[in-house]
């Protein structure tokens, strides 16, 4: 009965297009995952970009002999700073998209780009 409406070739076509769609889905999904994995730390000093580093590789970065920042276990934090208040050194490691650590006296900004989105309920900003 079915064959009256759906011939073998039609089924093949249907199968092929569905297969193609699923491949595309996997491709896009994979790309998304890859994009999330490629969270980066961008460092600026005095408004100039100093560099961008992937968060998935542990490393220590010196910033003009004034600040030292470390990427460890997928998060970045300020390890050392020669500024007087050292507020930046006390801040929690950052890993989510848009999170920043700022060293005001040295005009250094650490910022996460292309990172995982904040989970729902996590604040968009913190008042202090």
């Amino acid at each position: 009965m079915n064959n009256r409406y759906l011939k073998r070739n039609d089924l093949l076509l249907l199968g092929f297009i569905s297969f193609f769609a699923i491949i595309m889905l996997i491709f896009f999904a994979f790309n998304d995952v890859k994009k999330l994995d490629k969270a980066c730390l961008t460092i600026t000093e005095g408004g100039n970009e100093k560099g961008t580093y992937p968060l998935d590789e542990d490393r220590i970065i010196e910033i003009s002999d004034k600040n030292v920042c470390e990427i460890k276990d997928g998060a970045a934090y300020m390890k050392e700073a020669d500024c007087p208040d050292r507020l930046c050194v006390g801040e929690k490691p950052i890993s989510k998209n848009g999170e920043t650590i700022v060293c005001l006296p040295n005009r250094v900004i650490l910022k996460i780009t292309e990172g995982a989105a904040k989970s729902p309920g996590e604040p968009d900003a913190v008042a202090y």
Binding site: E91, K92, G121, E122, V126, A127, Y128
Partner: peptide
């Protein structure tokens, strides 16, 4: 969603 920082602890 806006957080209010806990006094005398880390900013986040």
């Amino acid at each position: 969603t806006v957080g209010v920082r806990k006094p005398f602890s880390l900013r986040n």
